[in-house]
Design a protein around this nucleic acid. Structure first.
Length: 546
RNA sequence: GCGCCCGUAGCUCAACUGGAUAGAGCAACUCCCUUCUAAGGAGUAGGUUACAGGUUCGAGUCCUGUCGGGCGUACCA
């Protein structure tokens, strides 16, 4: 519809002497006030300065020349400072409703990103412990953004990047060893900065079960570290699965060392004089890219900092032919990505292909008090524990319901009191309610399959409002995908559910004249479909009974 | 000090990327279950969008400054 409105406005604009630049962007919006119609354009106001004319005058001229299909548009009005307001024709609404029913589970999909291959990298937690609430936001945002992109036609891969080498992993191994020895009765202390979580003991138990005390004399940390990694990764995978998340690939940082791309990266940077040696370390001239300081790529110990493999890894992604790479990470990593982009650019890649979604921290609120967490100190709440308390659907919903860019307060109490105060249930309830009605309709009426419902019977204002709301679904998906903001979909679904509830109260289905029963059932069914499709994108179940 | 993000109803947050009268949910108050699920609905109250300037037809949204909060600012990840 928006495209149609753009095209007819564009036609009418030919009367003015305008360059293409001036009219490239014809904005169509849904007005806040219903009396302003179903769609509005501010084009006249935007052209006022270019044309040096009164915007209302421009609007009048546009409308005068406007040729539109009366099957689609019922009326066009000029209002306020120069808005052009459109009202949709009923026939158009009925046709579109019919279309929703025909498209069913596919309604809302588009091919806007057809043939685009997109890699979404998210979670990417190193296997040093179970996923915590902090990772939860990352995981859910990444997965939902991936879903949204798939619905707009892109071919999406989900990737988990990790590092199982380095100091943290050695520390993990040492922590397991200490617990192992302790459990076997040896006097030993957990290393300074060791991992104190209960899960370390469980890993040690596992080692005892498999090896009894055979590892007591072992010098290397590997048996402890490897076992820990294996158990923790299994745990992470099962947590993700529980949240309805399935990765397409796991990328080990080790790969960019082994295939030589680390060395290659440094070599190219040196050739371009963007890397140099100082104080025994290798530096990246990030000042060339607007930073205050240069950045160390390789420490004087010979060990690269994480920035170097990060750059090589992103080059690797682009080498794999992705048109767009999206990284999801927390605000604490905000400083690293400009360096990665600079690195990518220096290597000759198009930096605009890397897109970053930064989300702000999660504050867990329990018993009305904020709860600070740290993996190493072990006073964290794992995602699994959270899901034990509130369930997977609620967990996903809470992580999705806010703008990624603002702090998220996750009130466990509110989430748990799920019954009444929880917004997730409002959506699921609306869906279940519709199915409950449809079941009854099915019992009490038998409609001929060939007998098309007469949608023109849907003339109540609650019915019209509901149809209009349903029709917005595709563009909401589009905007949520473009902006990488899943909460827009939630806002929409809540609005839709609320509009449906008004319809539910105003318009009975059972007991009405048969044609009306059929038409309203069709509308209810379309609503359930959109709710189910939307919840599906969010990774939340759409129960038919509650 | 510098960089990024945030500041909207008592609380948690929206506001379609600059549009028309700033909206929801909790909490408070008043009503509504012989009617397809009351996990619901109708209504009342609650605001100088932190503050001060600026840009323009038009600002919660953009720019500058101030105040307040979060996160960074390592040869840690």
């Amino acid at each position: 519809m928006k495209d149609y409105l753009r095209s007819i406005i564009n036609q009418s604009l030919h009367q003015f002497d305008l360059s293409d630049d001036d009219i490239s962007e014809i904005q169509i919006e849904k007005p806040n006030q219903p009396e302003h119609g179903d769609a509005a354009s501010n084009i006249a106001m935007n052209l006022a300065s270019v044309l040096k004319m009164n915007p209302r005058k421009i609007a009048e001229q546009i409308v005068e020349e406007l040729k539109y299909d009366e099957q689609k548009i019922q009326s066009v009005e000029i209002a306020g400072p120069g808005f052009i307001n459109f009202r949709f024709a009923e026939n158009y609404l009925f046709n579109q409703l019919d279309d929703i029913l025909k498209q069913g589970a596919n309604f809302g999909k588009s091919d806007a990103l057809k043939n685009q291959r997109i890699l979404v990298e998210f979670v990417s937690a190193n296997p040093t412990g179970p996923l915590t609430v902090g990772h939860g936001r990352n995981a859910v945002l990444g997965d939902t953004i991936a879903n949204l992109l798939e619905w707009t036609g892109a071919e999406v891969d989900r990737e988990y990047y990790f590092n199982n080498a380095g100091r943290q992993m050695r520390m993990l191994g040492e922590s397991v060893r200490a617990r192992y020895l302790q459990l076997l009765g040896h006097e030993t202390k957990l290393p300074e900065d060791g991992y104190k979580g209960e899960y370390i003991k469980n890993i040690a138990q596992e080692l005892i079960a498999e090896n009894s005390d055979n590892l007591v004399e072992v010098e290397e940390v590997d048996p402890f570290k490897d076992k820990a990694e294996q158990i923790i990764f299994n745990d992470i995978q099962s947590t993700l699965k529980r949240m309805n998340i399935e990765m397409d690939s796991f990328f080990n940082e080790k790969e960019v060392y082994e295939d030589g791309s680390i060395n290659q990266t440094v070599k190219i940077l040196r050739e371009k004089d963007l890397a140099y040696d100082k104080d025994g370390a290798t530096w990246f001239r990030t000042t060339e890219f607007g930073k205050d300081q240069d950045t160390v790529l390789i420490k004087s110990s010979g060990e690269p900092t994480y920035r170097l493999p990060d750059i090589a890894y992103h080059a690797n992604k682009l080498d794999r032919g992705y048109d767009q790479c999206i990284d999801v990470f927390g605000a604490d990593h905000i400083d690293t990505y400009p360096d990665v982009l600079s690195g990518i650019e220096a290597l000759g890649y198009d930096r605009s292909k890397i897109d970053v979604v930064v989300y702000q921290f999660v504050t867990l609120v329990k018993d009305g008090k904020p709860f600070k967490m740290s993996t190493r100190k072990a006073n964290f709440i794992t995602l699994d524990e959270l899901m034990d308390e509130v369930g997977a659907d609620v967990t996903r919903f809470f992580f999705e319901m806010r703008d990624p860019n603002t702090h998220l307060e996750f009130d466990v109490g509110q989430a748990k009191e799920a019954g009444e105060k929880n917004p997730v249930f409002y959506l699921q309830y609306a869906h279940a309610r519709i199915h409950s009605i449809l079941r009854k309709v099915e019992q009490e009426y038998t409609f001929d399959v060939e007998d098309q419902p007469n949608l023109e019977l849907l003339s109540h204002e609650s019915e019209t409002a509901l149809i209009k709301s349903l029709l917005r679904f595709s563009e909401i998906i589009q905007s949520a995908a473009d902006s990488r903001e899943p909460h827009r979909l939630i806002n929409y679904l809540e609005d839709l559910a609320s509009i449906f509830t008004s319809f539910y109260h105003d318009c009975r289905i059972l007991g009405e004249e048969e044609g009306l029963v059929q038409a309203r059932s069709a509308l209810a069914k379309a609503t359930a479909q959109v709710l189910a499709n939307g919840l599906g994108i969010l990774g939340i179940s759409a129960p038919e009974k509650m």
